[in-house]
Amino acid sequence: MMSGDDTERAEAAKAPEHAGHTKFTELTDNAESEAAEHIEAPEHAGHAQLMDDAETDRLIGNRLKEELAGLHVHGEWVSAVMRQMADDVDRVSGADGPSAPASQAILWLRRCQKILNAELEIPLPTIMTAGAAVAATALIVATSWQITAPQPSVHMWRVSESHHGAAVIVQEVVIKL
């Protein structure tokens, strides 16, 4: 049974269709302390059934988390690249956009190259969190410069399929510098 607070929270909550347009309140407050409420079985369900379901849920939750426990993010790397992204994305792909001074873009792309080279040192698989931002931003810059010469000489950058095109352009841009 939902409490008054739960109802209020639930009514304010909406599944976000667009990043940033989300309107929803805290969904997970007191999740642990409300474990007993976690199971909201029909009222006709017996006490034993409720307890059995609660125990089953506990076991399932624990087991599931165990199964995924081996999946790690390369924290150092992600953190470093996120810093780079935070530092660069707004400046290059933001208001200045394609009209950003070439010197600034070159500076940024040199940083990009540094990141790419650093990434190559890291054992795969790693998460490409900000790599996508780097690639996307480089794509914008490259497009504005009309850089097309496909002569990648840097090491292959492991990217997910959806970013492959952007990564190739990053390579092309980098070798131009």
Binding site: E34, H38, E40, L64
Partner: peptide, 20 residues
């Protein structure tokens, strides 16, 4: 959302736009 994120049924229902 229920087993991994530990969200409550009411929260999941609202988030996904479903009845509890």
């Amino acid at each position: 959302l229920y087993y991994f994120n530990d969200w409550k049924v009411s929260a999941i229902a609202t988030f996904l736009g479903l009845k509890e």
